[in-house]
Design a binder for these strands. Structure first.
Lengths: 112, 112
DNA sequence: ACTGCATTTGGTTATTTTGCCAAATAGCCA
DNA sequence: TGGCTATTTGGCAAAATAACCAAATGCAGT
């Protein structure tokens, strides 16, 4: 895979794109949405996305390694919470934007 | 690929995760960073990421279809600009966060 | 109409991601 | 200790993504 070399941003880009990539999957984003409402145990997140436990765990590890969430083990359960305070605001902003686009523009894509 | 069904967010998630996925690639994110500084022609963006023209074009189409950027053809050149006002602020916030993590925490991952 | 430039599209291959199953790990409680 | 539950890891097949080359498209100028 090609790297950025000419760009002045280098590591920034590397780090930030990892965050975006982590958020760029429906299951992971759903879980992050839930975490915006506060801490959740893995079991709750699993119920939310309805995938195999092992799959959920791997999704969570992607989010963890990107620094989007933080895990804490208490007793037998793992609790996850948001580690990136910027996220909820951005999601909210995106939500508004989405509504505007729905109302004003073309349905996001699909044009013959 | 599995869909969200149990989640109350459905289409939101679909749309938003597309945005994140679009931003989740170093080349695309670099270009978006550049676009935060205002409109750019494709040729400029190409120079920035130093990839094959066709590759750049496909990256831009991903961003376009996610609604992150807007294209406008003027004469022989295509100019792209940011379509999502939320983005620059979020990038800035992420940047700050990154600095904090570098200083305070573990280097994002890599622990024996 | 013909030529030249900027960009997009089509096609192919290599790499990465996703999701399941099975097995390993970790913490409680008897 | 042994068993139970919650979660993570390892491994594999299927699907999605990214990069290149070649060919097509669109617009300007001659």
């Amino acid at each position: 895979m090609a790297e950025q070399r000419g760009a002045p941003l280098q590591g920034h880009i590397e780090y930030q794109s990892r965050v975006f990539k982590a958020l760029g999957h429906p299951a992971r984003l759903s879980m992050v949405h839930a975490l915006c409402g506060g801490e959740r145990c893995v079991c709750d997140l699993r119920d939310l996305v309805d995938l195999d436990m092992s799959t959920v765990s791997k999704h969570l590890s992607v989010l963890r390694e990107a620094g989007v969430v933080l895990a804490e083990k208490r007793g037998n359960w793992n609790y996850y919470r948001l580690a990136l305070p910027c996220v909820p605001g951005f999601l909210h902003c995106l939500g508004q934007r989405e509504d505007e686009q729905r109302a004003t523009d073309i349905p996001l894509s699909s044009q013959p």
